[in-house]
Simulated scan of single mutants.
Amino acid sequence: MNEVAPTTALLKLMTWLSPSFPTGAFAYSHGLESAIQRELITCRSDAEEYLHDLVHTGSLWNDLVLASLSWKAVTQEDNLFLGQLNELALALCPGEERFLETSLQGDAFLKAAKPWGSKKFSLQFDSADLAYPIAVAAIAATNRVPLIVTLAAYQHSFCANLVSVMMRLVPLGQTDGMQILADLEPHLTELSKRAATASLDDLGSATLHGDFLAIAHEHQHTRIFRS
């Protein structure tokens, strides 16, 4: 596959993963709202530790592995495996809100990405829920956006959204928020490289506390975010 020019790839990813793209990512806290309400995150060091766990051993790592394999499935025109990866991505959601978070964003992303050729996947996933990382990877591969930069941009979007949640609810100042994102850069670079060569055997998470907090959010009396 001939990849598009770096500038073209960058522009596409900036559009697809920007707050203005109608995926509604800003409406989800990924369980952070529960953690903050329980005062488990009260300062920058708490926030960095929480994000570090999600990035390295939590839901984000699984998303990256599945996105990487989905990108390859599309480039190899293996629609059967792509569908199986989507089913696995949905099955890995630990609770209803996490399921809705990924499926609603995946569906919204596919619909909004019509100018970039998402129509070819519309029939395949017409009657099925579509996990967000699968949708992003599929469109990136269709548009010949390199795998490594796709994974890096996906991670950055995920982390930037959660930092935004922390800045509003902890609250963290802008200086602390930007420092967290700066400190994450080498981690995101490393994980992009690892995920690009990962297999299904590399799936796995160990952030049970975060999963339980996401489930607890379903029953939270006062909520700002949908998850």
Rank of each mutant, 00 (worst) to 15 (best):
R98G: 02
L181C: 03
D211A: 14
S45C: 08
G204M: 03
V165H: 06
G106M: 06
I224H: 14
V163F: 02
L123M: 09
A89N: 01
A112Y: 01
Q76N: 12
E97Q: 12
L169V: 09
L54R: 13
Y132W: 07
I134N: 12
T57Q: 15
K120R: 15
E49N: 15
S68I: 00
A47F: 06
A27D: 12
T7F: 08
G24W: 00
D183E: 12
L130H: 06
L80Q: 14
R226V: 02
I148K: 05
L66K: 10
L169P: 00
S70A: 15
D107S: 13
A131L: 07
A196E: 04
G83C: 02
E39H: 13
A140F: 04
A196N: 02
L203Q: 04
E218W: 06
L162N: 09
S192W: 10
I180T: 07
A198I: 00
T75Q: 15
S164H: 04
T189R: 13
P186A: 07
T42W: 02
L32H: 06
V145R: 00
L32D: 04
F81L: 14
S34A: 14
N161W: 01
G210E: 12
L69I: 07
R194D: 03
I224M: 09
L13A: 01
L32R: 06
Q124K: 10
L213W: 05
E3P: 01
M167I: 09
A153S: 15
I41V: 15
S20T: 15
N161C: 08
E39Y: 05
E3S: 12
S227F: 09
L169S: 12
N86K: 10
E218G: 08
A27L: 14
L213M: 12
C159H: 09
A25R: 10
Q105G: 14
A27C: 12
Q37S: 13
S34Q: 08
E48W: 10
